[in-house]
Computed example of a mutant assay.
Amino acid sequence: MSASSIETLEMRIAYQDATIEQLSDLVYAQSREIDRLNARYEQLESRMGALAESEGGDVPNLDETPPHY
């Protein structure tokens, strides 16, 4: 293998390492955002339940299709 080929391979590996690091950072940031959104969802779900209880009604099932569908 020539020196030029080895240098080319080393450059490719360096770029791949940088790309892997960027992707890793992105996955970590997305994981934190998903955790934050899940916590917010649970807060909102809890508040809806508390509001429904204070009004004396049942907690609405948001997964149910409305009757007009």
Rank of each mutant, 00 (worst) to 15 (best):
H68L: 06
I13L: 15
S2I: 06
Q30M: 13
R12H: 05
T8I: 06
R36H: 08
S54V: 03
E45K: 09
Q43M: 06
S46Q: 12
V27R: 12
I6E: 11
E7S: 11
I13D: 02
L37Q: 14
E64I: 05
E53N: 09
L37C: 06
T65W: 07
A50T: 09
S4W: 01
N38W: 01
M1T: 10
Q16T: 09
G49K: 12
Y28K: 13
E55F: 08
L26K: 13
L9G: 02
A52W: 09
L23W: 05
H68I: 05
P60A: 05
S24C: 07
T19R: 11
E55D: 07
G57A: 10
T19W: 02
S4N: 05
S5I: 07
T65D: 11
G49Q: 12
A39D: 10
S24L: 04
S46E: 12
I34V: 15
S46D: 07
L9F: 04
P60G: 06
D35H: 03
S5M: 09
Y28C: 02
E64N: 04
P67I: 11
G57T: 14
E45D: 11
S31Y: 02
V27N: 10
E53R: 14
M1K: 05
T8N: 08
G56Y: 08
A29L: 08
V27P: 00
E53Q: 12
E42Q: 11
E7R: 13
L26E: 15
Q30E: 14
P67M: 03
S2F: 04
D25C: 02
Y69E: 06
E21T: 13
D58L: 09
L26S: 11
L37M: 14
P60I: 05
D63P: 00
R40V: 09
H68C: 06
M1F: 07
D58F: 02
A39W: 00
A3R: 13
G56D: 06
S31L: 08
A14P: 00
L44K: 07
E21P: 00
S2W: 02
V59C: 03
E64V: 12
A14H: 03
Y28H: 09
S31K: 11
L44Q: 12
R32G: 00
P60F: 03
S5K: 12
N38I: 08
M11G: 02
D35I: 03
L51T: 07
Y69H: 08
D35W: 01
E64Y: 06
Y15P: 00
D58K: 08
L62W: 09
L23V: 03
P60Y: 05
I20R: 06
P67Q: 08
Y41A: 10
G49N: 05
E21V: 04
E55S: 06
E53S: 14
V59P: 00
N38G: 01
S4F: 03
A29E: 14
D58W: 00
N61H: 05
S31D: 12
L51A: 13
E33G: 00
G57Y: 05
